[in-house]
Design a binder for these strands. Structure first.
Lengths: 251, 251
DNA sequence: TCTTGAATTATGACTAGACAAATGCAAGCT
DNA sequence: AGCTTGCATTTGTCTAGTCATAATTCAAGA
């Protein structure tokens, strides 16, 4: 009988956070097989119900997937919650039945300057991949995107090919994230923006700022301009356990 | 020993959905005490672990709150997920340190016309409360709102006083919801809108369409216009178990 | 009256089993 | 080779308890 005294934190919480760590740090990448319940029983010297509780929780949150006889596997970074699907502009365009193309306007690897550091919310310099490109649907500009990727968090991005999949789609498919933030607002477009989107000067645009983290480390910061009137965001949801806090601000 | 054969659906799922029904239909209003675990054990003729699993799940999703010795209670409709806090414009304005006021432009109870029915997504006529008003922050227009409340779902709204709390705030505090949908877009405001918000003609606005349901029944449909540049929406979230599906559309 | 402290009660955590259901795999058959 | 079938593995669900912990209630004492 395992001693249970002196455990300040409950056992299942400890097991849970250890497994989460394995997944979040990338030590257990998507598709990796999590040890079966009997192994975890042995590892943590506890009963099956305890590890089952943990794995069931993680599965209900989508972090892992479980299949009888097969086992438990780390989920692929999921196309997720609420407003999150939107950043995959390529998938959205294809879903509309249009053809997708990417026009890269600029693309460089550089040391982060103060403005980059502010966008990523970090204090120290690092290498970043900075890009600006236009999403093209059926030969017409669909959205303009300005993106920064933190290469110290996502070194794989250095070798990624963004001609078939745009950076947002590539990141969704390859990098698991633990936190995200969206800022949405409307602007009267300035000539630089409207010009790239083939819009009349002063046309309204929907601007989506998106930032993601993995653990505490920044993954990417992106700003996307969508032409107004031709585009809107939809989100459906249940009250659920969303721990995220939402608020709005005046600039 | 309870028979477990012939149960096509698992026991804890059945218990769970029954309790959810009690809450969602309003039979167990916010603050209502859920039977203690031993009572539920007797009701469903099962072990404590089974009802505990159900109640723990519901608690983790925020539907109920549990306190040792006190018991389990239905949660107050929570100021919830992702972008949901935004609709409480009054709270947002007060949080900014400004004074709040409501200017009611129109307010009537009527049989729903075809346009109302489309907004609420229903096929049959019913009584609705239709309002248009401006949220005022420090004597200046902050947002314009057009709202429809389905009085067959929320008969209490008939007697509600919207001079201190605007309808959105009142609903958040009084009516639990099970589903919501947001549509967000930017528009170049037409003169009617910009006039009411003291904006130059053609100024960009952020438009938020919000609709909520309880069970399958519509609660309310609201459209809010926010001046661009002075306002943005922020949402932070984790990948979590958000069952909601999100997508975007072209109009 | 106010405070302290103990009894009570409900949840929280966990165990050590049980049987059911699904499914991947391999052995055997065609 | 391709197909079927049975078996072993793994998760899914559930039981009937134990001990721990928090918090409310209530009564005794200052």
């Amino acid at each position: 009988m395992p001693a249970k005294s002196a455990t300040v934190i409950s056992l299942h919480k400890r097991i849970r956070s250890e497994i989460e760590q394995h997944i979040l740090t990338g030590e257990w990448p998507p598709g990796h097989k999590v040890p079966v319940e009997h192994e975890l029983m042995a590892t943590y010297d506890c009963s099956r119900m305890t590890v089952n509780k943990v794995l069931t929780e993680l599965a209900s949150e989508g972090l892992v997937q479980r299949r009888r006889r097969a086992g438990t596997f780390v989920s692929k970074p999921r196309p997720p919650a609420t407003l999150l699907q939107i950043p995959d502009v390529k998938a959205e365009i294809l879903a509309l039945g249009a053809s997708y193309a990417l026009r890269m306007l600029s693309n460089q690897i550089r040391q982060s300057d103060p403005s980059d550091m502010r966008r990523l919310g970090v204090m120290t310099a690092r290498e970043v991949l900075a890009m600006r490109y236009v999403h093209i649907a059926d030969s017409a500009p669909f959205a303009l995107e300005d993106r920064l990727i933190d290469l110290s968090t996502v070194p794989e991005a250095r070798a990624a090919d963004f001609t078939s999949d745009p950076p947002g789609t590539w990141l969704l498919a390859h990098v698991p994230w633990s936190d995200a933030e969206h800022r949405i607002r409307a602007i009267n477009g300035d000539p630089e923006i409207t010009g790239l989107l083939d819009l009349p000067a002063n046309a309204a645009c929907l601007v989506l700022d998106r930032q993601t983290w993995r653990g505490g480390a920044p993954i990417t910061a992106a700003r996307t301009w969508f032409p107004a009137e031709s585009f809107h965001l939809v989100a459906r949801f249940q009250p659920g356990s969303n721990a995220g806090k939402a608020h709005n601000n005046q600039a």
